[in-house]
Design a protein around this nucleic acid. Sequence first.
DNA 1: CCTACCGATCGGTAGG
DNA 2: CCTACCGATCGGTAGG
Lengths: 200, 200
Amino acid sequence: MNGRRSVTAARHTRSQIVRHAMSVASVEGLEGLTIGRLAQDLGLSKSGLLGHFGDKQTLQQRVVEAAGAQFWREVWEPVAATAAGLPRLRAVCRSWIAYLSSDALPGGCFFMAVVTEFDDRPGPVREAIVGYAARWHHELRREAERAVSTGELPAGTDPDQLLFEVTGAMLALNAGRRLHRDPTAAGRAAQVVHRLLQAP
Amino acid sequence: MNGRRSVTAARHTRSQIVRHAMSVASVEGLEGLTIGRLAQDLGLSKSGLLGHFGDKQTLQQRVVEAAGAQFWREVWEPVAATAAGLPRLRAVCRSWIAYLSSDALPGGCFFMAVVTEFDDRPGPVREAIVGYAARWHHELRREAERAVSTGELPAGTDPDQLLFEVTGAMLALNAGRRLHRDPTAAGRAAQVVHRLLQAP
DNA sequence: CCTACCGATCGGTAGG
DNA sequence: CCTACCGATCGGTAGG
């Protein structure tokens, strides 16, 4: 089991490392990741693990990227075929609520877990997190703008205010579920979304 | 400067430690607190600092308690004299928004910063955080219930749904300000509160 | 991918 | 409140 492996095997190991690190980070945070712990969990040496990334910060960046891809795959893609505008916006919100209610990762949604951890830590990891959050916001705003311009939502609706309130509902859902173990949180978030996304 | 000090001096040192630890934790998290760093910041030895608390977990609990007291003092007390029910609820929300927009601590609201850090870490620190969050929720619900029963808010208003939405607005405000440095977040939160807390 | 190792720092204790 | 110390672990490097 020692010595160099094939390129394919190395790629597999690397993706295993990132996947496991994502799970750990959802519970302990990105700063709580330690090379020694990950190496032990996966049966690798510390240097064997670190060799895939160079240093810890690069590993953290790869984990953020993997989490961004996973979120996109699990929340957006299942509803990407829905008609643009209001129907798609409604579908994405349902999908988002389902994701936050699921146990895709042991610590819940990766981004909800690391946003407050890194909002005060300048550097490339923070910028990566901000980048994914901003991209998500832009995708949703595009749908909201379309829904307003086609008259699916009331004229004069401010897309950014709408998304502020949707985001708030998702944050409250996450806090309710994870901190207070409140089983009604998903229903409350759905109710907010239902009210916000009503045709005129 | 060495040797035992008076009881008063010791109390002063202790409260200085807790205050500083609260600031650090608002940025680095409660787990990011280290005895060595705090001791150096305050010009103490590690053992001198730790002697006030016994161990790190106890220090973390004292920090949570101090943060709970500070939040109460800065958000609730300034508006405690407002008439119970809807007026008080509105005043508390304004006060809460002002607090989240202020820079009372370098990392922003302590509780916003540590909730996702400890939602998956069982133990007395988590329980202390949950306790303060639940107490806050109960205080607000009392006002909301009163506002509904006196007819200040529409009959049939669900106080818990109302608070879910208020909490969401505050979480979105915090994320907007701290992650995206969005200066419009406070106004958006105020708009949500204004709509939610309208007389029938 | 490994072993062997580095200096720094972690939380905490003994003893004064 | 200090100095002096403990074993464990941190991120990371050298060399293979």
